[in-house]
Amino acid sequence: MPVLRLDELGDGESAEIIGYDDRTPPNLKMRFVSMGLTRGVVVEMVRRSVLGDPIEFRVRGYFVSLRKSEARYIKVRKLGGAK
């Protein structure tokens, strides 16, 4: 399964978080962690906002929005069977 960045998922696609980019700013890491965006968790891309940014995801049973520039730091492994 290919490794992608979270912002590369298409509508309705799911992926498992495998880690963060080394360049992720520390305050963003803190934020990700307390919002439950940790390794092993499955994230589903729900929709994009006007102009394609920010992006809404479903994770741990709730909805969270991330900007493209933030989602880029999260490395994921795409899961099959979407859509």
């Binding site: 709730y62 969270v64 991330l66 900007r67 520039s69 933030e70």
Partner: peptide, 11 residues
């Protein structure tokens, strides 16, 4: 710096 936009969309 740009601040993060990690925001919950509550039900």
């Amino acid at each position: 710096v740009v601040s993060p936009f990690v925001m919950e969309l509550p039900p």
